[in-house]
Structures are given as C-alpha cells and as structure tokens.
C-alpha cells in the first residue's frame, strides 16, 4: 500500500487532568471513506480538532501527507478540507461570497471551480442568497462545498449527515464514495450514527473514551455475504426434535427462545432446512441474523453505557 495520507502516532490530548485522547494510533489510506465511530463524548471532535491544528497536541504526532500538523502547519493543512462540528458560515454573506472568501485563501482555486462545487453539492441558485436564509441542510451542503473547494487530498467531516434529509444523506453518501474512488481522496467521517457509517464507509474505527477499540472493515460484498457464517434462527414446531437433528448432523445448535439458532453459511442453511423437513419437523420461518456494525459497536463499547 502507498504511504498513508494521515498517520496518527500515539496521539494524546489532555485538558487539565482529563485525558480526552489516549495514545491513539491510526493510519488512513487514500481512496477510502474511513469512519470514526464512537459514543457521545468519546473524543471524535477533539481528535478532528487536533488533525486540523485547531487545538494543540499534548503528546504524539499527527502527519498529513507526510507533514507534521504542529510543526509544518501550512504544508500539512494545504491538502485538507474539513467541517468541524456545525458548518458555521458568515451569515451576512451569500453562499457564493462565502466560497469566494475561502477560495482566496488557497492558491489556484478559480471561479469555475466555485461553480463546479456548487453544482456538486446541489445548492443551485440558492448560492446567491444570504446564508442566514439557509436551512440547516443547505448550510451543511455549503460546508461540504467549502471543504472540497481547493481539491484536498483529505476530507474531514465531523457528523456530516447532521441535519440532512434522507435524500441529502443519500446524495452525500454517493458523492463521498465518488470522490474517494475517482479522485483518490481520503475521507474521514465521524459519526455516532451506526447504520449511516455502515452504508457510507469502507472501514470504521471504533473509539471509546479516547482509546481506539477496533478497526472494522465494512462488508459490502454480496459474494462474501453468501459464504460468511452467520447466526441463523429457525422457527420450528418441535424444538427438541430440531436440536436432536442438529446434534446428529454435527451442527452446533442452541436455543433462541422457542426457536433454534445455528451458525451456518447459505448452503448449510438450505441443507439443515431439508434435514428438518425430512425429519417431519415443521419450519415456520428462517431468519439470518446479520451481525451489524451496531452489534459490533454495542458489543465493543459495552452496550447501554453510551456517554
């Protein structure tokens, strides 16, 4: 793999006596949408603030495109576009004026690029209205526009779907994927919306209380889903008989309420079903229990203890 676009090495942030980020190390490759998932207060925003140099780093180092954010700020930030928390823009200016403002701060952003970006985020003619007339979703779009204006190599978005309608979320998801795949952008998205992350990201880092818990590759591949072993629940009329069939077939079966649960891939499910039917057991339903990112997340972060 080529050099990671972002390297975080033992990054630590302490404010007073509190350790908010604790020796976090993570590399982000180019061309991927990388999720940063954690419950409220896990330290996602704090981490992002350090990545863009808004707050100092207590220990460790963050390198972007090989440049240290604290020591070579201008070089490191040059290829970063970001929204940190809410996309606050200058309300007394139009969307267009806001974009002109940020375009002036980076060399090589022409007016045609502003047009291009406006179209990409779907702001259309509303770009010429003052920002104080925008809805939250429109401000969010303008926020994305200013972040990608200067064609960054790394796009950092803190809770980007916040305030978007389902259509807007879908569009955002699609063009984030497009940016990542076509332009080789690395995209770092934080969220506590699990389902969202699962759809949007290629990989997800789960953090809790400032510590990296796990990096999960999000499975989108139909083929691998077919061969993956899953927990499958069979609803049957005679549970004991079904357990006996499982035992004779050498399949590890367990009770799941009044149903039987086995771990199996697609083929094995069909075979087990045939055996049950052959044994005269009525099968009322078969349900694959996909282990979602949510299960993983709750399992790893200890369920119910969010915050």
């Amino acid at each position: 793999m080529e050099q990671p676009i972002v390297q975080m090495l033992n990054v630590t942030k302490r404010i007073g006596k509190r350790t908010i980020i604790d020796h976090l190390s993570l590399d982000l490759p180019a061309g991927e949408v990388f999720g940063f998932l954690g419950p409220n207060g896990a330290g996602k925003t704090t981490m992002i603030r350090m990545m863009v140099g808004l707050i100092s780093i207590t220990g460790g180092e963050i390198k972007i495109d090989g440049h240290s954010i604290s020591k070579q700020f201008e070089k490191a930030i040059r290829h970063v576009g970001a929204i940190v928390e809410n996309p606050e823009m200058y309300k007394y200016m139009t969307g267009y004026q806001n974009l002109v403002h940020f375009a002036r701060m980076v060399p090589g952003v022409e007016h045609s690029r502003i047009q291009e970006v406006t179209e990409l985020v779907g702001l259309g003619s509303r770009i010429n209205d003052k920002v104080n007339t925008y809805s939250l979703g429109m401000r969010q779009r303008l926020g994305v526009a200013q972040a990608i204006l200067h064609r960054p190599k790394l796009l950092i978005l803190d809770e980007p779907t916040n305030g978007l309608d389902p259509m807007g979320i879908r569009e955002l998801r699609d063009y984030l994927q497009r940016l990542a795949k076509q332009e080789g952008l690395a995209i770092f998205v934080s969220s506590h919306l699990l389902a969202e992350m699962e759809l949007m990201c290629d990989r997800v880092a789960i953090i809790q209380q400032g510590k990296l818990v796990e990096v999960v590759k999000v499975e989108k591949n139909r083929e691998s889903e077919r061969t993956a072993t899953q927990r499958v629940v069979f609803e049957v009329d005679d549970l004991e008989a079904a357990l006996a069939v499982a035992a004779t077939e050498g399949i590890a079966g367990g009770r799941a309420g009044r149903a039987i649960a086995i771990g199996a891939d697609k083929e094995a499910v069909a075979i087990f079903n045939a055996k049950l039917v052959a044994a005269g057991i009525k099968v009322y339903g078969i349900q694959a229990q996909h282990q979602s990112l949510e299960d993983r997340f709750l399992e790893k972060t200890g369920g119910g203890h969010i915050v």
Binding site: E74, I77, E85, E88, Y90, M105
Partner: peptide, 14 residues
C-alpha cells in the same frame, strides 16, 4: 462566537 474561526484557521496560513 459565530464559529467561523474554525473554518478560517484551517487554511494554509499561519
């Protein structure tokens, strides 16, 4: 107070 400082300071300027 408006929060725009966050967008201003993440440009390639000291």
């Amino acid at each position: 107070t408006s929060g725009t400082i966050k967008l201003l300071l993440i440009r390639p300027w000291m």
